[in-house]
C-alpha cells in the first residue's frame, strides 16, 4: 500500500518527528511503499544540516537523510521553509524543497496519509 506521512513539528522539541520515523520504519519493514514524506509548519526544521545534537543522542536530520537515500521522496514546503530561514544551502542530502502541490499529489496518490504533529 502507498503511504504518505506529514510532519508538522520541529525535531527534539516534540515527539512527532520520532513517532513519524518509527512509523515509517515499521511501514517499510512490512513492505509498504512510502509515497512521500512532507515537512510543514515547524517540521521544516527537521532536515537542516546545521543541527549538532550531543554524540549520545539520535541525529534527527541524518536519520531523515538516510531514509531519503533509499529513494523515498522527502519534501520540505518552500513557503514554510522560507518563512523560517530554511533554504537549500542548509538542507541535508536526499531532501528537497518544493511547493504545496507536492503535498496535494501525495494526498491524492497515497492510499493513506498519516500526520504527526502537536
Amino acid at each position: 500500500m502507498k503511504l504518505a506521512v506529514c510532519i508538522y513539528e520541529g525535531p527534539y522539541n516534540h515527539e512527532a518527528s520520532d513517532s513519524a520515523y518509527h512509523f515509517i520504519k515499521a511501514a517499510i519493514d512490512k513492505g509498504h511503499e512510502i509515497r512521500g514524506i512532507f515537512f510543514y509548519h515547524d517540521g521544516v526544521y527537521n532536515v537542516t544540516k546545521l543541527m549538532e545534537p550531543p554524540q549520545d543522542d539520535r541525529h534527527i536530520a541524518n536519520r531523515w537523510s538516510e531514509l531519503g537515500a533509499t529513494g523515498i521522496d522527502i519534501v520540505v514546503c518552500i513557503a514554510a521553509a522560507k518563512r523560517r530561514g530554511i533554504v537549500d544551502d542548509v538542507l541535508v542530502d536526499n531532501v528537497r524543497i518544493s511547493g504545496l502541490g507536492q503535498l496535494t499529489m501525495m494526498a491524492i496518490e497515497a492510499d493513506r496519509m498519516v500526520t504527526f504533529g502537536d
Binding site: M1, K25, A26
Partner: peptide, 10 residues
C-alpha cells in the same frame, strides 16, 4: 506497537 499501528493504517 508500531507494526500494529501500520496494520491499522492499512
Amino acid at each position: 506497537d508500531y507494526a500494529g499501528f501500520v496494520d491499522f493504517v492499512e
